[in-house]
Simulated assay, not measured.
Amino acid sequence: MKEACERYGLRRSMGETGICWNNAGAESLWSTFEHEYYYRHTFAYRTELVAAVDNWMNFYNTRRRHSTIGMLSPHSYE
């Protein structure tokens, strides 16, 4: 994969295999979702879970306060 990207002049979004911080942002996001929402709810159908993820992501990305931006929501920060 690395060689193919280099051949076509593409910049990869990940580093070498085994570097722990490649997925740190994604892992943090899903861990937060699991602890703040998933473990506190029961889903009878897959469609309920998909809708829950969509709703939570909308909340997380627009209204939830984030410590990295001074405990403001992204809307307030912008």
Results as ranks from 00 to 15, higher is better:
Thr17Cys: 07
Ser67Trp: 06
Tyr60Leu: 04
Ile69Met: 01
Ala51Trp: 02
Arg11Met: 08
Ser31Lys: 13
Glu48Asp: 10
Ala24Ser: 15
Asn22Gly: 08
Met57Asn: 15
Asn61Phe: 11
Ser67Ala: 12
Glu36Lys: 05
Tyr8Ser: 01
Arg11Val: 11
Arg63Tyr: 07
Tyr8Leu: 00
Ser73Cys: 02
Phe33His: 07
Trp21Pro: 01
Phe33Trp: 15
Ser76Trp: 07
Arg11Ser: 11
Met1Ala: 13
Asn58Ile: 05
Ser73Leu: 01
Met71Asn: 15
Thr32Ser: 13
Ala24Lys: 12
Phe43Glu: 01
Glu34Ala: 00
Gly9Arg: 04
Val53Ser: 09
Ser76Thr: 15
His66Val: 03
Thr32Phe: 06
Ser67Asp: 06
Arg40Gln: 11
Glu6His: 09
Ile69Lys: 01
Val53His: 06
Asn58Met: 10
Ser13Ala: 00
Val50Ile: 11
His75Thr: 12
Val53Tyr: 09
Arg7Gly: 01
Lys2Trp: 03
Met1Tyr: 06
Thr42Cys: 05
Arg7Gln: 08
Cys20Ala: 05
Val50Asp: 06
Ala24Leu: 10
Arg65Pro: 10
Ala51Lys: 05
Thr32Ala: 08
Cys20Arg: 02
Tyr77Met: 12
Cys5Asn: 00
Arg64Ile: 15
Gly15Lys: 11
Tyr8His: 00
Met1Asp: 11
Asn22Thr: 09
Ala44His: 13
Gly15Tyr: 09
Ile19Asn: 14
Pro74Val: 09
Tyr37Phe: 04
Thr68Arg: 14
Tyr77Gln: 13
Tyr45Leu: 13
Glu3Pro: 01
Glu78Trp: 03
Ser73Tyr: 01
Val50Tyr: 03
Thr32Tyr: 09
Gly15Pro: 05
Phe59Ala: 12
Ala52Asp: 15
Val53Asn: 08
Gly18Ala: 03
Glu48Asn: 06
Met57Thr: 15
Glu34Ile: 00
Ala44Asn: 14
